[in-house]
Design a protein around this nucleic acid. Sequence first.
DNA 1: TTGAAAGCGCTAACAA
DNA 2: TTGTTAGCGCTTTCAA
Lengths: 335, 335
Amino acid sequence: MKATIYDVAREAGVSIATVSNVVNGKGKLSKQKRDHILKIMEELEYRPSMIAAALTGKKTYTIGLLVPDISNPFFAEIARAVEEQGHHRGYSVIICSTDNQDGRAERYLDLLEQKRVDGIIIGTGIENTEILKRLLAKSIPVAMIAREFSSEPVHTVVVDDFIGGMHAAQHLLELGHTSFGILSESKKVSSSRERVRGLKQALKDEGLSVSDENLMICDYKMEDGKRKALELFQQVDRPSALFCCNDMLAVGALQAAKELGIQIPQDLSIVSFDNTILASVTDPPLTSIAQPMEYMGKLVVDLLIQELEEEQTVKQRIVLPPELVVRQSTSEVRK
Amino acid sequence: MKATIYDVAREAGVSIATVSNVVNGKGKLSKQKRDHILKIMEELEYRPSMIAAALTGKKTYTIGLLVPDISNPFFAEIARAVEEQGHHRGYSVIICSTDNQDGRAERYLDLLEQKRVDGIIIGTGIENTEILKRLLAKSIPVAMIAREFSSEPVHTVVVDDFIGGMHAAQHLLELGHTSFGILSESKKVSSSRERVRGLKQALKDEGLSVSDENLMICDYKMEDGKRKALELFQQVDRPSALFCCNDMLAVGALQAAKELGIQIPQDLSIVSFDNTILASVTDPPLTSIAQPMEYMGKLVVDLLIQELEEEQTVKQRIVLPPELVVRQSTSEVRK
DNA sequence: TTGAAAGCGCTAACAA
DNA sequence: TTGTTAGCGCTTTCAA
């Protein structure tokens, strides 16, 4: 059976309080006695139960991470950064892939609450704002990453999606494009919404626009990007430039283009968003708006831990600048 | 403050035992009383503490997943499958990226033990077998995925790496190649070792071999694959075919080739392993030996849960067949 | 069918 | 400096 604090105490001839003290580095006791107890713990392979500790009021040192899909490279990189910084600060992370479904998110949130996690990082869109409001009302620390929730103050780390969308537009405009298509995620995903808004705004500034039939709403899956891209490409007036709200969709578009014999970038320029590993390895490599994923992950964790350790109440909203990375999926428009 | 079982009991005018029963669907009590209690729980937003439940002997319904790097697409897909099936069966998963460092793995293992996880899935190479032996000795359920640990019986789900290596060799041999290079991970990674062994065996069967200077040992990072590939490509007798132990390394090799102006597959054929999303989007797309990641993830979880719920002792070792997926990174050798 | 009470492994007063 | 003791929120006999 597993050794408990009682076993150690008995074996060492001290009280459990003393053992507890050496485990937590508290109290003053002779180095000799401490070493002795340490030795006993070693012998008994004693592993203090964080479960029991948590029950007495300590934290669980566990946080939850909600993302649409951990196998999506963007969220995989975010997760890695969160895990890294969490671990560094003494917290473990439980992953929760929501598939962008409110139902799943809600169930996961409930579960995390039951597991008494110390905080939750949300990187997934949640349509029903009630869910988030209820969560916040519970006074369990929450921080958002790569997603916004504007109707309530929450710690947030995002890239300026609107500016990112504008960057994409400006790049395409400089290349002479005048007709545009968009592969976006559902409007409930705040980041995609902003990106599209930024793109449209920049176009509008030049007296241009995107027609409704050229704006395709997709799932966040590659396959759906491909499907919707096929649809888009087969319309009568195919645009000369395509903006994809993330690399996954862009990869789908790339595949659709290949299937239809559309040459990238000669026949069609593509700008994507995120700049994950995918953007650098595709054929051709994708021009993409980069998000500093690693840094963002580190920041949310710090924000969250700051809140739950220092109970500070000023909610921060950190907005990082996106960066255009030009590769080979964009070129001057063919006259 | 959070509602406890006492609050519910008091409010409902029953004992905590009764509340406990309705939470767990045990005991027989009138539908009326049950509904009443359910209603109170709703009102109080009662969320039973799994921490407290775990302390009384119940499980934590949490498992740990050790992988080298969750941001690596292969492990991201494995993680997604593990999370999915875990969630389906009622378990949460804590991710642990070890960077292939024994030290990190050991610390994570200790932590998971303290958190009293119900079981651990290991998908990372651990050099020091003592660590694993100690873990197994503790009678905490363990299952391996995509990695082997042969000196002790453990539940294991792997692809037949040896056969996979042979497949790669056979494909290259059929294309007429006679000189080979290898980008492998460290020998401590059992899967890579077996893949290389399979490749070499198949070559040997044809009277061929790989010279030592053509076998490069890499980190599991893309950058290192590139670095080692550059080294390899700049040798006097550049091989006409390259086998990469995983997609990440192959992507690195692709980049090295591009940098040196080596055409793939005209100047060099590349076969990689894993068939992650990367293989399908690179330029050119990679011929790769596929592992059924999703299925493997589901299987380990089932194996692990079977062990920890039914305390069955016969350790299973499930070996799945790898599958050659031909894309455009391989072609007939140029005479 | 329901309740009282012991106990899970630990922390944190409070005493000694 | 060290020990005693009362919880933390739940499950689980055992009685009623």
